[in-house]
């Protein structure tokens, strides 16, 4: 079965991203396909490569990046939500005249249409938020 995942909250403050990660991992272990993980609202903050959590804590962003690499996951950060919150890839940084980008490996920035497409193409959509 094909799953779409929506993550509405950023890392650490809420458990949403952790729950979404555990669910995604379990679905992959069961042989399901993850059509896309879409990050919206503060969820876009899961995609920053600048976070430096303490050594003894989980690294939420790196964990997503590693899972994406291992399973060719499509991790999509909403462009409108990302721009509001200061998450940029190289293209967006250039287009908006910013001097840096901060998107992590395995994440890409795209439009809200990608969320609707996930709703259409996936057999099930699961929402994690606050």
């Amino acid at each position: 079965m094909k799953f779409g995942i929506l993550v509405n909250e950023g890392p650490y403050t809420h458990q949403a991203s952790d729950s979404a990660y555990q669910f995604t991992k379990a679905a992959l272990e069961k042989g399901h396909e993850i059509f896309r993980v879409f990050f919206y609202h503060d969820g876009v903050n899961n995609g920053t490569r600048l976070s430096v959590p303490p050594q003894d804590d989980r690294h939420i962003t790196n964990r997503w990046s590693a899972l994406a690499k291992e399973h060719q996951l499509d991790l999509v950060v909403c462009v409108a939500a990302a721009q509001r919150r200061g998450l940029l890839d190289a293209n967006e940084a250039k287009r908006n005249g910013k001097d840096a980008d901060n998107i992590a490996d395995g994440f890409r920035i795209s439009g809200l249409g990608q969320l609707i497409e996930a709703g259409i193409q996936a057999d099930r959509l699961v929402v994690f938020g606050d």
Binding site: F3, Q22, F23, K25, A26, A27, K30, H32, R124
Partner: peptide, 8 residues
């Protein structure tokens, strides 16, 4: 979590 996946 595996059961959660099955439930969905």
């Amino acid at each position: 979590y595996g059961d959660f996946v099955d439930l969905v």
